[in-house]
């Protein structure tokens, strides 16, 4: 459709794109398929898989870059943004996808350092990227930011680490505040709130729950699937489609929205 053609030639940064089966990589693929030049970023330990994903995109004719970026380091984020602007001419879309799980769900077991680390990545990392990219968007006359929050950013869910929930609520808050500040300068900022998505992070969750409750991983998965109206977890590609929609011109009246992509699951219902 018309507005998707408008995606051609745009430049997007997708953070946390290192894991080949993760949401970030699926977002990069989706945007690339719409003609967006994509910059995949992640931390050093993902260097090899980042490069492989970039090469796979290039093999399909996409313009792509892979850059190591630790979003908790503002100076490093600024350097990467400068590099992208020099190489690709600007940044139209920022997808803040990088995030970590957050450790324990039990108040008395949470180490303050683990809580701080979760906030440092999920919240402050998102903030650093916004602060570095927004000036480029202002120069270009606009842009779109999509933050990958979580259904946990709208309500608490049993078994999900408290620091994670707190950090994602904060990301939703940041999303809304940023949306208001830049609404009349043509920068839109929205959040997607994925529910249960079939990634390694979900597998890790079930392994932990299975261990704690003496059930199998498959049983743990079924228990959660039953709480979803569609009776299944989502796929990374389904999150990616929503990110592409929110980043595109079709969503030109949407800003400051936190959109659940969860198949029909509390607290998104």
């Amino acid at each position: 459709m018309g507005e998707l053609e408008l995606m051609k030639g745009k430049v997007a940064i997708v953070t946390g794109a290192g894991h080949p089966m993760g949401i970030g990589c699926a977002i990069a693929k989706k945007l690339a398929s719409l003609g967006v030049a994509v910059v995949l970023t992640d931390i050093t330990s993902c260097e090899a898989s980042l490069r492989a994903s970039r090469e796979a995109l290039e093999a399909k004719g996409a313009t792509a870059m892979d850059l190591i970026m630790d979003i908790t380091q503002p100076a490093e984020v600024k350097r990467v943004v400068t590099t992208v602007v020099e190489r690709l001419g600007g940044i139209d879309i920022l997808v803040n996808n990088a995030g970590i799980g957050g450790g324990s769900s039990q108040l008395l077991d949470i180490k303050p350092e683990a809580f701080e680390k979760t906030l440092e990545v999920n919240l402050m990392g998102t903030f650093h990227c916004c602060q570095a990219v927004v000036p480029q968007m202002l120069k270009a006359g606009g842009g779109a930011i999509v933050n990958v929050a979580s259904l946990c950013g709208l309500g608490a869910i049993p078994e999900i680490p408290m620091p994670y929930t707190a950090s994602k609520f904060a990301v939703v808050g940041l999303t809304k505040a940023l949306a208001l500040e830049f609404a009349d300068r043509n920068i839109r900022c929205n959040a997607v709130c994925p529910g249960a998505v079939n990634t390694f992070m979900r597998d890790q969750l079930f392994e932990r729950i299975a261990g704690e409750q003496g059930i199998t991983v498959e049983e743990a998965r079924n228990l959660e699937d039953e709480t979803i109206a569609l009776g299944r977890g989502g796929e990374p590609e389904e999150i990616a489609a929503t990110v592409a929609y929110l980043a595109g011109a079709g969503a030109s009246y949407m800003t400051g929205v936190a959109l659940p992509v969860a198949g029909g699951m509390a607290p998104g219902l």
Binding site: A183, V197, G234, V257
Partner: peptide, 24 residues
């Protein structure tokens, strides 16, 4: 069919107004 995992949602087309009031 692309957005196969959005279900039971009330999508806000609100120009930012659900987030609050801006300075202007």
């Amino acid at each position: 069919e692309d957005c196969g995992f959005i279900n039971g949602q009330a999508i806000e087309l609100c120009g930012g107004s659900s987030a609050g009031t801006n300075e202007r």
